[in-house]
Computed example of a mutant assay.
Amino acid sequence: MKNDIPVYDISTFEEYKNAGILVSRFGHYSKQYLHLHSAHRHSFYHLVYFTSGSGTQTIDFQNYPVMPGLIYFMTPGQVHSWSFNTEVEGYIINFSEDYFKSFLYNPLYLENFSFFDEHSGDAVLVLPNEAREKVAALFEEILNEGKEARAFDADLVRILMLNIFIQVSRGLSLKQQSQTNSYNQTLLKSFKKLIETNFIELRFPKQYAELLYITPNHLNALCNDLLGVPAGQLIRDRVILEAKRLLINMELSIAEISEKLAFSDHSYFIKFFKKQVGATPDKFRKQDN
């Protein structure tokens, strides 16, 4: 593994004619960017739909099989790698965080789709047979729009992408769909967003409960009911995820990582990490190398 995990920006990819987006057949993309098979991060949104082939991929240290019909979604900042056993084909779209903001009145529209929430459990899923052909046809339309300049082509690409998101979202369970707009789901989503931006400074549920204008008991009950874990575990999980991401960078010492994560001393960080992961940071780093 390289000493430092690379981070790729959307400007790295210039195959598609419109700024802020890359659309490609996956086989071509995979062979052209072989360095992306190793662990890396994106500063953009990323989705892949596999139509053939096999292997594995790792997203934030979780392994998933590669198989026909599987589609996955990634948000900026996640760590990713592939390992294929056979030739793999499908479609890939990379798009910047701002790609939809000038098009949609609601800049947070993508948050309506649970698969763009890395903590939802919906980011990697196998499409039902009846949806696969429809989704593949939408990818083909997007590829065709990239072949020549035509009026409103950029807007049509955005519409086709939203169509893909909606088709995939409809394939999720009715229970998940019915929960999307509930008060508790909205509150949980707000809690997760607060964790994402404050997990280094704020480590206790009561601090987040105060920001959400609810009691700590309410927050804990909410997390236990919807996720089966207490609120504190979500905070600890996010700290551990960031620790793992930093541990990939072999140039950072354990003490430096501890300081970046605002631990009072690195010995406490080691104890915290071992309790949550079952291995010391150094052992995790050697296993992942």
Rank of each mutant, 00 (worst) to 15 (best):
F95M: 02
D155N: 09
H266K: 06
L156W: 05
I166W: 07
R203T: 08
K101V: 08
V229Y: 14
Q207L: 03
K283I: 15
T86Q: 04
A231T: 01
D122E: 11
G121V: 02
V168L: 08
A154L: 12
P68M: 03
P230R: 04
L247N: 01
E201H: 02
F115L: 01
D225C: 01
F273A: 06
I92R: 13
K244M: 10
A221D: 10
T180A: 10
L143M: 11
A255S: 14
L108T: 10
R203Y: 01
I214H: 02
G55Y: 11
Y16H: 07
S11K: 14
L70Y: 01
T56G: 04
Y109S: 08
L234E: 00
K193E: 13
F113N: 00
L252M: 05
H80F: 15
L188Y: 10
N289Q: 05
K286C: 00
S30G: 13
Y208E: 00
V48Q: 04
Y29Q: 08
M250E: 12
L202D: 03
I93R: 04
A123G: 14
P205L: 00
S258I: 00
F73Q: 02
E89W: 02
L36H: 06
H28S: 13
E210M: 05
V126N: 07
N112A: 05
R158W: 11
Q287M: 08
V66E: 03
H46Y: 12
A123D: 02
D117A: 03
L188P: 00
N85D: 14
L212I: 08
G171N: 11
L172F: 08
Q233C: 02
M161H: 11
E242C: 07
A209W: 01
H119D: 08
H266A: 05
Q233W: 05
H218L: 06
I92E: 15
R236V: 12
N18A: 07
S114C: 04
Q176D: 14
Q177F: 12
N220W: 01
A231W: 01
V23G: 02
L127H: 05
V88M: 07
V48S: 03
N112E: 13
F152C: 08
S81V: 03
F139W: 11
D282L: 12
N106P: 04
D288C: 15
A262P: 00
P205G: 01
F44R: 03
A154N: 06
K271F: 10
E210L: 07
E148H: 02
L211M: 15
W82R: 13
F273C: 07
E210R: 12
A19Y: 10
L188R: 04
Q57W: 02
N220P: 05
F84K: 02
P216C: 06
K271T: 14
K274T: 15
D153E: 12
S24W: 07
R158Q: 10
V7R: 08
I254Q: 01
T215H: 08
T86H: 07
L138T: 12
Y91R: 10
K2Y: 02
E256M: 06
R170D: 11
E97T: 15
L174Q: 13
I240N: 01
R238K: 09
Q207V: 03
N163Q: 15
K175G: 15
L34M: 06
